[in-house]
């Protein structure tokens, strides 16, 4: 901490902190205020007399009503939720087991396999969607949630595997050895000892994976076409930007309401999440 006079603390701690907080939160504020401002204020020119971009005197719910009533936003929200949850679940299960195997089991090429998995994660999605589109078409999955549920794990599994591998490596191996001497098979030692200890790591991997699939844009744009199948990011952008007309109010309302579930998930797990990132396992 910062020692000395109080003003030092204000100057070197609270002031920079405030700058960061404002810097980070401003986009959200902009999103929220745009959602609430009536169109009349939104499209007022900057040199008008009563131009006030950061505040509104006449908040309105018009944009939100339009979003909910005239678009399929509730359906998109549901689609996104379902796809994000299921693909996160699949990726977590695979990632936890694969990470455990890479961290703990001795088998030939374990090291290069780990590196290989990491490299797949580095292949850009903007390239990978081309062959994947072919696969999706061959299996006739286009325009169904399965198109995304099955393709998101292509980048989520390497991600989860890598994160979990690091986490498992940080858990002292004596814990597991002791459990195995105590009478647990490798499988039971994993279920009763290793997984409970790894909960913070599993949560962080899960939250990351959930956020990644929630925000995913390219695959959703390419693999889904009908309006009632879309996810929030694609739906909002494709239905509320018509040609060169931006429906700023409803757009921002969609962005705002789309980020609320993620924010809730974060705040719910934040304590575990932080300790998971710092990887603290105490014996």
């Amino acid at each position: 901490m910062i020692e000395g006079a109080a003003w030092r603390k204000w100057l070197f701690f609270y002031l920079p902190l405030a700058v960061f907080v404002i810097w980070l939160l401003f986009p959200f504020y902009w999103m929220a205020i745009t959602t609430l401002r009536p169109d009349g204020e939104l499209y007022r020119p900057w040199n008008a007399k009563n131009y006030e971009p950061f505040w509104t005197a006449n908040p309105t719910l018009d944009h939100i009503m339009l979003l909910l009533e005239e678009t399929l936003f509730p359906t998109w929200l549901w689609n996104t939720m379902l796809i994000a949850l299921v693909s996160t679940l699949i990726s977590l299960v695979c990632g936890v087991f694969a990470g455990y195997a890479l961290a703990r089991l001795k088998f030939p090429f374990a090291g290069s396999l780990g590196t290989g998995i990491f490299i797949t994660y580095l292949v850009p999605q903007t390239l990978l969607f081309i062959p994947l589109a072919d696969v999706i078409r061959n299996f006739r999955l286009g325009d169904t949630p399965w198109a995304l549920i099955l393709t998101y794990p292509t980048f989520l599994i390497p991600f989860c595997t890598w994160l979990m591998m690091g986490y498992f490596k940080a858990i002292p191996k004596e814990l597991e050895e002791c459990a195995r001497i105590d009478g647990a098979s490798r499988w039971k030692a994993m279920i009763y000892i290793i997984l409970p200890v790894a909960v913070p790591g599993i949560l962080s991997a899960g939250i990351f994976a959930f956020t990644l699939s929630w925000n995913e844009f390219i695959y959703a744009l390419v693999f889904l076409s009908s309006s009632e199948q879309k996810t929030v990011p694609v739906g909002v952008v494709s239905e509320l930007i018509r040609g060169d007309v931006f429906y700023w109010g409803p757009l921002m309302a969609g962005a705002l309401m789309g980020s609320i579930p993620v924010a809730l998930v974060y705040s719910f797990f934040v304590e575990h999440y932080v300790s998971g990132l710092t990887g603290s396992v105490k014996g």
Binding site: P172, L175, E177, C178, I181, I193, P196, V197, V281, G283
Partner: peptide, 14 residues
Amino acid sequence: DIAMVFQNYALYPH
């Protein structure tokens, strides 16, 4: 049918 005590104790933290 053995029991082992480790240097770092290896107590199950949870």
